[in-house]
């Protein structure tokens, strides 16, 4: 197990393995996401109360879900950076922060579009919406802090601490709808109970969540590869790789 862990620390090893994984991630991601969205938007039954406007759930929930779990992944990578000083963990945090920012923005935006016809307002300062907005600022802060510090190692440490400080927001987002009175409804999916929607609604939702996960994996690999090439440009294997690519 530890050997695998140490291998994971080698940028060259990761570069090779991710290159092999990426086509599968991309194909699987597109396939699942398309299936989920087409099924959800065109074939799933409409809701008895909200009619067709509830269909935005098939985009809103996957983006919101990913926005939070990307942050949790970043927090794990931040612990690895701080404790084991693994370069690849820092590369991960740096590469996925903008992706997380975009996902958080998308979930806020689709939520606002959904809120207008159902609640009657684009925005309300309830605990769920506000904590999600804080997540957006956290992602922005991580990106800004990373850009602000020139030295790679001190940037990695500062960013890791910020990411760890921000991780307390994740349970707040998750449980905000249960701890406080909010306009946002509680979660439809709970770990312990079956979802409070029929299978012809939650199966496409699950497909699009999984599809977005795979697509995120692909995007993360792609961005990490770029970052690795940039950081390791002086090493022998990168030179060989680039020269081989040139033919």
């Amino acid at each position: 197990m530890w050997q695998f862990f140490h291998k994971l620390g080698s940028p060259k090893w990761f570069f090779g393995i991710s290159a092999r994984l990426m086509p599968w991630l991309l194909a699987g991601g597109i396939l699942l996401l398309m299936a989920g969205i087409v099924w959800g938007l065109a074939f799933a039954p409409k809701d008895y109360l909200q009619g067709n406007s509830y269909r935005i759930i098939f985009i809103h929930v996957p983006t919101a879900f990913l926005a939070q779990s990307v942050y949790v992944m970043m927090a794990v990578a931040a612990v690895v950076t701080l404790v084991w000083r693994m370069k690849l963990a820092d590369v991960f945090v740096k590469s996925v922060a903008p992706v997380g920012l975009v996902l958080t923005f998308l979930s806020l935006f689709t939520g606002a579009v959904w809120g207008k016809p159902t609640w009657g307002t684009w925005w309300v300062w309830d605990a769920r919406l506000t904590s999600m907005l804080i997540l957006l600022f956290l992602y922005g802060g991580v990106i800004a802090l990373d850009r602000a510090i020139n030295d790679e190692k001190s940037a990695a440490r500062a960013v890791s601490v910020l990411v760890l400080v921000g991780v307390v927001n994740i349970p707040i987002i998750q449980y905000s709808v249960e701890w406080w009175n909010t306009l946002h409804q509680p979660s439809t999916f709970k770990l312990t109970e079956k979802p409070s929607m029929p299978a012809e609604m939650w199966v496409p939702l699950l497909l699009s969540v999984l599809g977005l996960y795979l697509l995120f994996g692909w995007l993360a690999c792609l961005r990490m590869q770029t970052e690795i090439l940039l950081r390791e440009q002086r090493t022998r294997w990168v030179k060989d790789y680039v020269l081989a690519g040139r033919g």
Partner: peptide
């Protein structure tokens, strides 16, 4: 001066609701 609708986490097709 403002009334917002709050809906719950249950979704179902109209036929099931009926």
């Amino acid at each position: 001066d403002q009334v917002l609708a709050k809906h719950d986490e249950n979704y179902m097709p109209p036929e099931v609701a009926d």
